[in-house]
Design a protein around this nucleic acid. Structure first.
Lengths: 370, 370
DNA sequence: CTGAAAGCGCTTACAG
DNA sequence: CTGAAAGCGCTTACAG
């Protein structure tokens, strides 16, 4: 490897283009040096070098059957010398199982998915499993061929499906066949017949809306994320909000809809900011709440003096926004871990009904109306 | 599957616990129904049902060699009837290649990594490749066994290493052996001998610092992310800031160090807020800038009236923070795509030196000192 | 504790 | 266009 001089010079082989560029690597290396890999040593090479039989090498590899210490040493030494690396595909073929867990998810950069994914990976690693992700948009489920097929063709341990209800369960089931599955479903949704971890969006939304009502607001406006595809209905968060209002006998204002984007959140927030009767807004997630606070600011309305704003999720930035955001914390870390465990060991997994650190977090952005 | 009544009731088999819980799935399903999968139909079953030979089935599978239409139809029909799914491990064994791309990365919830990962996945899917991720902390590289070994044991297409310089290149190389690799390195770092995509953190930091100086600030304070492990030195962003100051003959204040966490950013920001001579702060990333703005607010110092604050990355929220954040946009989407292409096709990849949408974005948080 | 044999499910030349 | 044979690299009974 090159030395680390710490200098600020750019690599000599650089195809410079503004401040970002690409280099094909090893100086003078032809593309083929990347494509054609030399023949890897196999268990057979190791066996002959160590002067033992194939099964013996296999035994020190798996560790299932005891091998004489001296023999073991010799085999290990031979492996080191040859730079031997077991062939996972061959092993998977004979064992009928690949130590891989698949994850089917939507946009992994969004807070909830990102945290669940990170935690699934961490937990899977603990069990010695690799995580393979496939981002699939519910709308393009049918066309999401390639990668998903590769995943499902492997004799994998199973698949974790995040936000299960956004997919069409029939199509999903047909595609997955008999592959084990564990899902994360979100509160207030219909009962399902698959192993699942429940993140109760419904309850979270209801609770947050109640908080705003308890402060004395006549009603609470809502900025919503898109409804769920497979459900055809509104999002659980929207239902939680609606039912909280109905239960309190408060009027139910028209919902402001967004497309998940911040821009659409700003637009929705601006619409509410223009309405002087609005004193409280519950947003389907923290990002939309931030966007709403921005819109309020631009319209010259103070949060929380003029308008209270609450979110849902409790992203890290919620605590430091100015004003800090009242929101409902959802424990996606727990959800990710629980889903993985549920897949690995349904019996065990179902027992550890966890200790989710969820709940309303009241901060600066909400207060009684004046 | 269960019906979708849209009701808000929780599943009957629920182990209720607050607002989040776990259910082991298929009602009455014993754990074994998950562990033991029935024997999958093989190419042999398909062949005998369709009354053709094994190779013929293989041919309709691969599509490489033409097959008589009528025969093809019969084979396809047999596959459908049996619910046949090819065994990827067997195919990989004979072909010597698994259509899988590995990604070695740190905390995938952080903005840059998250976006690169998402884009790598999208691009890989286009090529029919699956993406397997392994989150590995540079410090625990040696112990990060399990999952990484599984990944590297597969005859994968190659590995994309994000933020390459945080790892020890020697250890990494030893672990990867002859597996093709494409990396993302960050600006101002030492030249490397591997295929890489450059995201120029150094230039970004220098440019942003220059912007603050050009506004008339005597100097610019800095809140830094941790240095890079393998480099032992300071982060490229810190070097960019330092050299911009030196080039301008401005004094170089002590650096405020953080551990990436928002809390440490708030603490660092508070330290600067307490110093009345501070008029401009450049933060290593947007999150730290948000934290700093929070600290300034708490200390009663106005941004940008009293203090200018700039970040780096241009996260989505930067544009809607109050005040909106001046920052330097880095095109992680491009970087992710370019890295994947570089891995797949080094020759092609190196040519498309991209059109990164990077650059300084001046917003509300910076202005001349009074 | 160790070796010879069979086989995991597929693809790839090789014939026809 | 199609079939019989060999083999990818490993593990798993089966003997010893």
């Amino acid at each position: 490897m090159s030395s680390h001089s710490g200098g600020a010079s750019t690599p000599p082989d650089l195809v410079s283009d503004g401040d970002a560029s690409v280099s094909a690597g090893p100086a003078g290396g032809s593309p083929t040096s990347f494509r054609q890999r030399e023949r890897q040593p196999t268990i057979r090479d190791v066996a002959s070098l160590a002067q033992v039989s194939l099964p013996t090498v296999s035994r020190v590899l798996t560790g299932a059957v005891p091998v004489r210490e001296a023999t073991r040493k010799r085999v290990l030494e031979a492996m080191r010398e040859l730079g031997y690396r077991p062939n996972g595909a061959a092993r998977a073929l004979v064992q009928g199982q690949q130590p891989i867990v698949g994850v089917i998810t939507r946009d992994t950069t969004r807070h909830g998915y990102a945290r669940m994914l990170l935690n699934i990976e961490a937990r899977a690693k603990l069990h010695g499993y690799l995580v393979a992700i496939t981002v699939v948009d519910p709308e393009e489920f049918d066309t999401a061929g390639g990668a998903l097929d590769v995943l499902l063709a492997q004799p994998i341990v199973g698949v974790v499906v995040l936000d299960y209800h956004t997919y069409d369960p029939v199509k999903l089931q047909r595609r997955l066949g008999s592959i084990p599955i564990a899902t994360v479903i979100h509160g207030g949704e219909s009962p399902v017949d698959v192993a699942h971890v429940l993140v109760d969006d419904y309850e979270a939304a209801r609770e947050t809306t109640r908080h705003l009502l308890s402060l004395g607001h006549q009603t609470v406006h809502h900025i919503a994320v898109p409804g769920q595809q497979a459900n055809q209905g509104s999002h659980a968060r929207e239902r939680g909000w609606r039912e909280a209002l109905e239960a309190a006998g408060a009027p139910v204002p028209a919902v402001q809809r967004t497309d998940w984007s911040i821009a659409s959140g700003v637009a929705a927030g601006a619409a509410l900011a223009a309405d002087p009767t609005v004193t409280a807004v519950f947003c389907s997630n923290d990002e939309l709440a931030f966007a709403t606070m921005r819109s309020m600011h631009e319209a010259g309305r103070q949060v929380p003096a003029d308008v209270s704003v609450a979110g849902l999720d409790d992203e890290p930035l919620a605590s430091i926004w100015v004003p800090s955001l009242t929101t409902y914390r959802l424990d996606f870390d727990w959800a990710g871990q629980a889903a993985l465990e549920l897949l690995i060991d349904p019996a065990e997994g179902a027992q550890r009904a966890g200790n989710p650190r969820s709940g309303l977090v009241v901060r600066e952005s909400t207060r009684p109306p004046r």
